[in-house]
Design a protein around this nucleic acid. Structure first.
Lengths: 210, 210
DNA sequence: AATTGTTGTAATCGGATGATTACTAGACCG
DNA sequence: CGGTCTAGTAATCATCCGATTACAACAATT
């Protein structure tokens, strides 16, 4: 009996539960997106990503070849998600909404895709890197051509829209929402920048967002 | 004779030219600003900074204690430079210029302070770091309170101004100017974002800026 | 049941990196 | 001159990190 006290089920799982590679891949990409968003490319280790995905570090490297390739794939997915959300906001629903408004709302609502804005921003400050920088430039120019060719924005609207988007991303990157309630000036800035969308942001990135 | 072939004068200077500590400090800070701007905090090594400043790596560390302290000082100087430039643009020179225009021009012209925009941006994506993040938040909120209390901006102007500033910084961070002339869409985006200030930016960050 | 491919880990390697220690050489000063 | 302070380096340490290798367990197929 006492010899049976420890069963197989209580043995520490030295190995992770088996899972189709494609599914595991998604898990890793999700974990990597969140970590890259918080700490950037150089500040994130493949081991942190592995632990967040519940597997060992060598598996992460083998699945993506290199850390750089992993980041490129994370960046690519973030851009794809962005364009899907933007294109979904293009058609006029018939209410009196303006397209600029709809696209702006779509961008803010992407806070639901955890780490998207900040990961993009980290790519956007990596222009110096020959590989990541090139991908980032291509991505940003792609956003511009979308606004010009599909949303038919005027130059002034483009400037304003991109400016608003970058401001939002920076405020997320600086983690201003997480300090909400501790500094009146900071709270005011949040309101000035996000306006009535403040609630959405605070729900995801606020102090209570575990 | 052959033993005299190598004279003292041809010996490689193993040691750097002596210089007052304060002056060397400025050299290091300048080099660090440029490197942090290009590669970010985690992507820059103290050895790279040392080489750029013409001294050895341990000297950098000893002068500032830690790499983190060095970055904080770089950030502090960048913010100081920014506020000096902003305050200089406050008084109305009597021409018909608007304050928002003058501050915007002042911000763009800071491309002359090499690495300022990008270093700030790198700090602004480091919100996750307990020390650097806190300093970055404080700096950004400081910019906001300046616009509110000293420039007397309306909330709408604040949003627009900060948005424009972040867009500019991101375009510098992505190193879009350096590719000018290779992609018509990218060039167009440059024009949309920077307008008549394009020339100033290209002069400093363009393809020919060694 | 034997074979084969897939999912996963343990161990380890080699290089990079921030920091520490101990030392040297030049300037300043009485 | 001799002593002391300052500006600087060489050498090295401990750690981290991405990548590689070799192997184990499980599943599927025949």
């Amino acid at each position: 009996m006492s010899s049976m006290a420890i069963k197989k089920s209580s043995a520490p799982a030295a190995t992770a539960a088996r899972m189709p590679a494609a599914q595991r891949r998604d898990l890793i990409l999700a974990a990597a997106t969140e970590l890259f968003a918080q700490r950037g490319y150089h500040g994130t280790t493949t081991d942190q990503i592995a632990q967040a995905a519940g597997i060992s570090q060598p598996y992460v490297v083998r699945m993506f070849g290199t850390k750089e390739q992993l980041f490129l794939e994370v960046l690519d997915r973030a851009l794809q998600t962005l364009f899907v959300a933007f294109r979904a906001a293009l058609p006029d629903p018939g209410d009196g909404s303006k397209l600029t408004q709809r696209l702006g709302t779509a961008f803010v609502d992407l806070v639901g895709s955890v780490g998207l804005h900040r990961t993009l921003l980290h790519a956007f400050v990596s222009g110096n890197d020959p590989v990541i920088g090139a991908a980032a430039r291509k991505g940003f120019v792609g956003i511009y051509t979308f606004l010009r060719d599909e949303a038919h924005f005027e130059p002034v609207d483009v400037q304003q829209f991109l400016g608003y988007g970058m401001l939002m991303s920076v405020l997320l990157g600086i983690e201003l929402p997480s300090t909400f309630g501790t500094d009146a000036d900071a709270d005011e800035l949040m309101n000035v920048a996000f306006g009535d969308k403040c609630g959405v942001v605070l729900a995801v990135a606020g102090p209570d967002a575990a």
